[in-house]
């Protein structure tokens, strides 16, 4: 796999020359591989949101470079819009950015800005709506008549419709009920599976990240503290707790068992894995 986005020694300082001067991202280097499902986790204020806004050129680094493919995205500032079409960014609570009269028009806003033909826009809008699980019947409704969860889906579809090479979602499930959360994440997983595009999900919920991603990057205090497969990251559960993050509930159970003297792999992070680990302890018989 080769990296599609490479971040080199990125620093971003807010409010330079004022008493509020603060580095939200400090000397971060990371790589996002083509086709992977990457999770970025960190507690509030760890610099997650600032970091991802650099990936599509919404923020310009105070120092450091962001490469898309092998090009520095700020090599030609006039072409920064092209970067935004290739790296789709869904903000936190994206439903607050809806503005059009109909759902259809709102989803079409991105593709329209790309200057695509009517037919192509139509295809993309319908495809994107299907990916996020919106009924065709909703397309002609006003986005303001929809429920919160549906609005969220419309906003995500608005970015998916640009068919970006990389899709970045900032806390896509924040504020949704458990059922809505599960089904939205299922939609995103399906999108990743079927399209094969790179997906980056930012979250502070360990459970959510653990169940979905191939690789995790952990941010704390404006820098990267850990990076690896969920298994690698959760095997360092104590360190995660030390930087103020939770570990998945299943991992917590395993950690506790281990503390009480059960020789179980502490890095399990899904229910299925825990079951397997426990049955291995019992000598191969299934537990129910």
């Amino acid at each position: 796999m080769k990296p599609i986005i490479r971040v080199d020694n990125l620093t971003h300082t807010y409010g330079q020359d004022t008493p509020f001067c603060r580095s939200a991202v400090d000397g971060v280097s990371l790589e996002i591989m083509e086709g992977e499902f990457l999770g970025i986790i960190g507690h509030t204020g760890s610099g997650k949101s600032t970091l991802i806004q650099h990936l599509n050129g919404l923020l310009r680094p105070t120092s450091g470079t962001v490469y898309l493919g092998d090009r520095d995205i700020w090599a030609d500032p006039k072409k920064i819009r092209e970067v935004r079409f290739q790296v789709g960014l869904v903000f936190q609570y994206p439903e607050y950015q809806l503005f059009e009269e109909t759902v259809y028009k709102d989803i079409a806003f991105g593709p329209k800005n790309m200057g695509l033909s009517e037919q192509e826009i139509d295809r993309r809008v319908r495809d994107a709506a299907a990916f996020v699980g919106l009924d065709e019947g909703l397309l002609d409704k006003s986005p303001f008549e929809l429920s919160g969860g549906q609005k969220r889906r419309v906003a995500i579809a608005g970015v998916i419709a640009m068919e970006p090479k990389v899709l970045i979602l900032d806390e896509p499930s924040a504020g949704l009920d458990p059922a809505g959360r599960r089904s939205l994440l299922e939609n995103i997983r399906a999108y990743h599976r079927e399209r094969g595009t790179t997906v980056v999900m930012v979250s502070h919920s360990m459970d959510e990240v653990a169940e979905n991603v191939d690789r995790i990057i952990v941010l704390a205090d404006a820098g990267v503290v850990m990076s690896g497969t969920p298994h690698q990251v959760f095997s360092r559960a104590e360190e995660l707790v030390a930087v103020g993050l939770n570990v998945p509930q299943v991992t917590r159970v395993a950690m506790e068992l281990r503390r009480r003297g059960v020789a179980i792999d502490p890095a399990v992070y899904t229910v299925a894995e825990l079951r397997r680990a426990l049955s291995a302890l019992k000598g191969g018989t299934a537990v129910c």
């Binding site: 599509n56 919404l58 819009r81 789709g88 607050y96 950015q97 608005g158 970015v159 640009m162």
Partner: peptide, 13 residues
């Protein structure tokens, strides 16, 4: 600022 960023992310100019 947030809304502008979100619309810029969709290619608004």
């Amino acid at each position: 600022d947030k809304i502008m960023s979100a619309q810029k992310a969709r290619g608004a100019d």
